[in-house]
């Protein structure tokens, strides 16, 4: 059977001040269905870039390699097509949309994805019922649906809002970019619980972090270490604890 997510030899660059800057230098990674994988690595190793490339940010130019999702060429798809195909990116810092009502945004997104998946669109009443229930399950304040998307949200509220979107869009593959939020324990727990709730044989997740802390709430199947635009090492959950105790230096030295 074809793998769920297959990344092979992926290279990508970005235009930085008029110069091409190579960030991914041949990433190989495969994630089977039903598993949670973690990517760790020092700052600047390309972790967030990988998540953006997979989600389709146009500033990143893929120069070599491939990525397939459910056997489809992921890199040929528009960002919204990837979303419809079941890929969800939880942003490291969720974007604010001034003046855009959260409920309206969520419903527009949910119906766009449902339409693309051949499902019936939800009318306002049905949608609001579903959204309110999901929000309640996440202990979100009732007025968060009425507020503007992420505008004036606290860090925790933003994370809850990301998880709410993830719950409603029902992805089969979630990328959680948590590189910089490692110290906010509450925020991490919200994200971890959101992922745990979705765990199923058909759902996988890729969690990006450089802190062991997140893994206290989330039991991963595999750990990958990324450095200089490549996955340099993979292993079981014990690898994360080892890194936490010994730092990256040793691992980087070993592969250098």
């Amino acid at each position: 059977m074809s793998q769920f997510l297959e990344i092979s030899g992926l290279c990508a660059q970005i235009d930085a001040d008029g110069q091409d800057k190579q960030i991914l230098r041949g990433v190989d990674l495969s994630i089977p269905p039903g598993e949670v994988h973690v990517i760790m690595g020092p700052n600047g190793s390309g972790k967030s870039t990988l998540s953006y490339v997979l989600a389709g940010r146009e500033e990143y130019v893929v120069t070599a390699g491939s990525a397939t999702f459910h056997g489809q060429d992921l890199l040929a798809m528009e960002p919204e097509e990837r979303a419809a195909a079941g890929l969800f990116l939880a942003f490291q810092s969720p974007i604010e949309l001034p003046g855009v009502n959260n409920a309206n945004f969520l419903r527009t997104a949910v119906n766009a994805v449902r339409r693309a998946r051949g499902q019936e669109e939800l009318d306002a009443v049905a949608f609001l019922k579903m959204a309110r229930e999901a929000a309640k399950a996440l202990s979100m304040a009732p007025d968060m649906l009425k507020r503007n998307v992420n505008v004036g949200f606290s860090g925790g509220e933003k994370k809850r809002n990301e998880v709410l979107q993830m719950t409603l869009l029902q992805p089969t593959f979630a990328i959680l970019d948590e590189t910089d939020s490692g110290l906010d324990v509450d925020a991490l727990r919200i994200v971890a619980e959101g992922v745990n709730r979705l765990r199923a044989p058909t759902f996988s997740a890729l969690v990006i972090t450089h802190h062991q802390k997140l893994l206290d709430y989330l039991v991963p199947d595999r750990i990958h270490v990324m450095a200089r635009g490549r996955i340099i090492l993979s292993g079981g959950p014990e690898l994360a604890r080892q890194i936490d105790q010994e730092g990256y230096t040793k691992f980087l030295a070993e592969v250098a």
């Binding site: 979303a83 949309l97 997104a109 766009a112």
Partner: peptide, 23 residues
């Protein structure tokens, strides 16, 4: 990009953001 990652087409995303701008 945020809107498109959530499944909105570029045109719908622009419409949504413009409506927000005019709120």
């Amino acid at each position: 990009f945020y809107c498109r990652q959530r499944g909105l087409s570029e045109e719908d995303a622009v419409g949504l953001i413009v409506n927000g701008f005019c709120r």
